[in-house]
Every structure is written in C-alpha cells, then in structure tokens.
Design a protein around this nucleic acid. Structure first.
Lengths: 333, 333
DNA sequence: CTGTCAATATGAAACGTTTCATCACGGTGA
DNA sequence: TCACCGTGATGAAACGTTTCATATTGACAG
C-alpha cells in the first residue's frame, strides 16, 4: 500500500541499495543521483518503514518507561520530561503502569522487553522479581534502587536532613514525621536523614532535644490525611508544632486534616513536603517542600539509557529546600 | 543472539512453518508434534520476535495515545485507564505529548503513524492540521472533536447545565462562570449548557433572573486563581455568590484565590468544578463537581480503536453531579 | 595499450515471521 | 487395483530494510 524503497529505486532508475545510502546520508553517492532520488522520494511520498529497518538492525527506537502509577503527579512529571527529551532525539516512549504490584511489574517488563526497546527506564516496586530479567537491555532505575542496575535519584537522606534542619532553624522542637512505606528504601532514607539532623541537634543542644514522632504511611493523599488526623488529636501541649512528610501528597492530605480540625497552618502547625509537585505551589497555604530536580533526573536517566558511555552505578542529585507559606516559627500569630 | 523460530524447528526436527502453526494454535497439527515443539520452545527459551511478526503482518500491537499534557490529572487518569485496558488485551501504549501546540501535534502524530500502530487515541488540539493525516489508522478522538473522526466525550453541554441547575436549586442568583479557552469546542459547550439553564430559569422566573458573569480563561490552576481574584474583588453586593468552572483545576485555583482573599467557601461563595479529578475530593472544602466517567471514556475509546465493528461518529456519555462540600445555599453561616 | 586505482553503483543476502501452494501418506470406495 | 481424499507437514516466498562483497566506470600512470 505505502510506497517502499523498491518503488523509489525503480522510479528513480537506481538500485535499492543506492536509495538506502541516500537515506543514510552516506557520502559515497554522486550528487546528481542523490538529487534524483530525493526528488523521487518527495514525488511519491515515500516514508521508510520502521519495522523493516528495526528488524534488520535488531533494535527499535522505543524507550520503555515503567512507573508504579502515572496518576501520581511525580511520575506524570517524570513521564512528561522523559517523553520530551526522547522525542527530541527521535525516540518514542512506551508507557507501562505497575500499580505497585510486583507481579504486574514482572509481566509489564517482560512484554516490554519483547519489543526490543532501545532502553528501559524503570521505577521498580520489587527488589527481587525482575532481577536478571532486564539483562541485554540498557536499563536505568529511577527513584528507587534495584540491585545490579544504575540508579538516578535524589539524595533522599539529604532531603530529610534539609527538612529537619529548616524546622529546627525556625525554632521548632516537637517535630513529627510522616514517612512512606518501610518496604521502600526511599522512605527509609528520607526518614533517616530527618532523624540524623535531630541527633546532631541533640548533641549540640542536649537540653532542647525532643524525640520526634515518626509514623509510617503510604505516599498518597489519604495516608497523609489519616495520619495527620491521628497526630493532631493529641493535646496541644504534646502534639508536634511541625510535621515533615515523605511526599507532597501526604503533606497536602495533612493540610486537609489540619484544616478539618481547625489547626491553622502555619500558625499552629508548620508543614514541609517532599517532591515539589506542581500542586505544591497551588494549595493554601503554599507548601514549603524539598524539591526533586525532576528535569535533571529525566535527563540523566535518558542519557544513561541512550548514551554510549558505560553506566555509572549511581547518579545522586541534590534536593533543594523551597520555602513557601506552610512554615513559620512556632507561636507566630 | 536470541533463539529464533528456525532454531526451534531444527531442534524439534520439524519445519518452521509447523512451529509457526503451533504458535498460532492452529488446529492442523498433530498432537505429538505439538507436544514436541512446545517442549523445545520451553527448553531453549524461545520467544517470538515481535518485529519479524509485525513486519510480516504489516501491523503492530501498539496503541498511540496523544494527549496535550500528561501532567494534567485528567489526561493522566485517561492514560492510566487506557494503558490498563490495552495491556489486558496484549497491546502496549505509546505516549506522546503535544503541549497544546498544533505543530508539535502534527509532528508527534506523524512519527507515531510511522510506527504503524494498531490504533490511535487522540485528544486533538488543532482542528485543521492533522486532518487527513490519520487516514489508514483507526483513530478515535477523545474529549475534543476533530472533523471526520469518531469522538468519545462527555455531554459537555449537559455538564454545564447540571452545574447551573445545582446552583440555582440552592438559591443562588448571581452566578459566575469561568470558562476554558474559546479555541476549544469543549469549553464553548460547557458554557452554553450553563447559560442555557439560566435562560430557562429566566423564562420560568423572570423576576429573579440575573445575567451571569462569564470570563474566559485556560483550563489550568493559574487561570482559575487569576480570574477568581478578579471576580472576587467586586463589591460584595454585586459579586457572584456562586461560580462554576470548566475544570477542577480552575476550581481549585479559584478556591485558592478565595482563601487568599478571606472569602469563605461555601459560606460566602459556592464553587462547582468539572471533571472530578482525584484531587477534587482532597482539597478543602471538598469540591462539588461534574464528573466525567473517565473509565467509560477509556473503554469506549479503546473499543473503538481495537474493535472490528464500524465506528460510530460520536459516543456521548452522561456527566453526573457529585455533591461535596464546596456548595451551600447563599448566606449559610 | 594495459594495468591500477578511486569512486560509485549494483545485487543479493539476511533479519524473523506468516502463509500458501504443494507434497507425502494412509485410508476409503468403487 | 486404482483413483481419490483428507490430514498433516513442508518449502519457499514475501514483508521492507541495511550492508557487504562485487561489478562498472573513467582516469591516469607506466
């Protein structure tokens, strides 16, 4: 149906090999033949069949992107950046959701690999299952580590550290922390960074130290709201004056809980989120948060997958504290 | 490198054609040979090369999904549902963003079509450019119409109608409406439905009718916030007691503006959104909104693209009003 | 005039499938 | 016995590329 390279060759009176070389911008083709072929291509509207080419070359120009849930703003943002960069280089992005289910993940990756992608960008949910499955395809892990594969991620420990540091500097002493599920390393690191800063504070200001209240949850809105409610029902004298979370979604849920309970933010409660999703600057009050440089993450991941150079084991990026309206010194009217 | 069908054939002592027939679950192959071939496949870990197959069949099992912006929660939700349904049927989803740019859209669609997808699901941003470009590939349009192609969408006019109806029923008379950009038919329809209900009201209650304040904006948070500020700076006696918007994002921006200006929702101002994105039930107060049945939309779109039946011109779905906390009768304490 | 060399163009093979026209082989009916 | 048929298996072609070993020039040196 569509014209093929053979049609072009025939119509231009040359061999298919020659046409192919014209297409490949190969030097060894004379000027006038090149012109004639190009004219013919234009004339009959020839467009190379990507399947024939992929078959011959045994590789495609498709990038697989596997995320737990595209509905999560962080991953949506990641997908957007990856797609932008990839399409600028002539690659397309195949999207797969795992719904945080290891079995679904295995399945998705398997069918993805069957399509011989040029590379795979993966936000893994399980540590074991996919191990070894991704051999033979350049694979970069994002956000969460997977043994044996390159990882692009923010320095989560440093992120947690920054949050605690900011709150301490504002004068808060009774701190709360809503972490992510302990099944993910990410949340452990963020929490540990948070705690580490507090430990440091304990040694420098032994008299003022108060042990933080740490509760584990999921990364979503709901979890932030529920745990927030629970934390805030304590007597005003013992409940935290500031809470840091492991995700902006949790922080926004927490914001909602505070609102429901008449706890004013930031007057009665300071909140620090994590990620800096677009919504963070649109809630009321605007969310102070730890930003992940997601464009950088996407760039590095794609570079890793497409680049010819050997993959480093880990690309750690520095998170940065974004000050907005959800934090204040305790007792600020 | 990977074993091919030839290896299987050779090792099992049959012809490649036979192996292919086994793979295709074709009836005309004897029981014992079938067993032997299957055993061999298992033994050497053969997996059919999808490229060879696609080339031969001149089609792939890839679905192209083209959206303006995957970061928009509505489209993320759409992508998630499409991906779920598609992968359940053995198809994969190729994602492309157009950033609301007609030229990018043309470009994206063109390269997508070059990959010979089984079908294309498109949320178009321009009416003209891609026309005819998508011939030869089963294409379904979602959300916004494109002449000459099947459309799956909610009845937008009815959605606007419902919003106005709800607010009138609550007793509001001075209404505001924040619409989407007039370049999209969608926003026109929603606005017209809204106005239509008001016209009906005018004929039934001629004495009480007040002309609505309608302002045009974009679908995003920022636009809702800006226009909201502008609307709410009017004197309390003339400004609307209720505002409907063309998207939840606008409504949330509006919510933010109201909060900033000390206008209490729903006490001083009722708000109705549109879409029912996940976040709608998480803001404070929870957003009353017009829900689009997005799972249905995804299902119909995929059905249209994959099904063998002829495409209808239009699949209109009914929106439904979701009552939450952002609306109340005017003057409710 | 002949042999060489560089510069270009050609033809065919190969990538891994599916499919279709044949073929082999028993069995059956006349 | 022979023609015929049905059941299964085979072999080769075809899908549209790229690439590599050859072939064809023409120019130029000896």
């Amino acid at each position: 149906m569509n014209p093929t390279i053979k049609d072009v060759a025939q119509r231009a009176g040359v061999s298919v090999g020659t046409v192919s070389r014209v297409l490949a911008k190969n030097k060894t083709v004379s000027e006038d033949i090149r012109k004639k072929v190009e004219a013919t291509i234009e004339a009959i509207g020839y467009r190379p069949n990507i399947l024939g080419r992929s078959l011959r070359l045994a590789k495609t120009d498709i990038i697989g992107l596997v995320v737990p849930d595209i509905t999560n703003p962080f991953f949506a943002e990641l997908a957007k950046h990856v797609e932008m960069l990839a399409s600028a280089e002539g690659y397309s992005v195949l999207l797969a959701n795992t719904h945080d289910d290891p079995e679904a993940e295995r399945q998705q990756i398997e069918t993805l690999l069957g399509r011989l992608p040029a590379g795979l960008i993966l936000v893994p949910v399980s540590n074991s299952l996919v191990d070894g499955l991704v051999a033979g395809t350049r694979t970069v892990t994002v956000d969460r580590p997977l043994s044996g594969h390159a990882l692009v991620a923010v320095d989560n420990r440093q992120g947690g550290y920054l949050a605690a540091d900011h709150l301490l500097a504002l004068g808060h002493r009774r701190l709360g922390y809503i972490s992510g599920p302990s099944s993910t390393e990410v949340s452990g690191e963020r929490r540990d960074g948070f705690k580490q800063r507090l430990e440091e504070f304990r040694t420098t200001h032994p008299g003022e130290y108060v042990a933080p209240q740490v509760v584990e949850g999921h990364f979503d809105y709901r979890s932030g709201e529920e745990i927030g409610k629970q934390m805030l029902t304590q007597a005003a004298a013992t409940r935290p004056t500031a809470i840091a979370t492991a995700s902006d979604q949790q922080a926004i849920g927490l914001l909602r809980a505070a609102g429901d309970m008449g706890v004013r933010v930031p007057t009665d409660l300071s909140i620090v989120g994590f990620d800096d999703i677009p919504l963070a600057s649109l809630v009321l009050p605007r969310l102070t948060t730890i930003r992940q440089p997601i464009d950088e993450i996407a760039r590095l991941a794609l570079d890793g997958v497409l680049g010819s150079h050997a993959l480093q084991e880990e690309y750690k990026l520095q998170p940065v504290l974004i000050r907005r309206g959800s934090c204040a010194a305790p007792g600020t009217p």
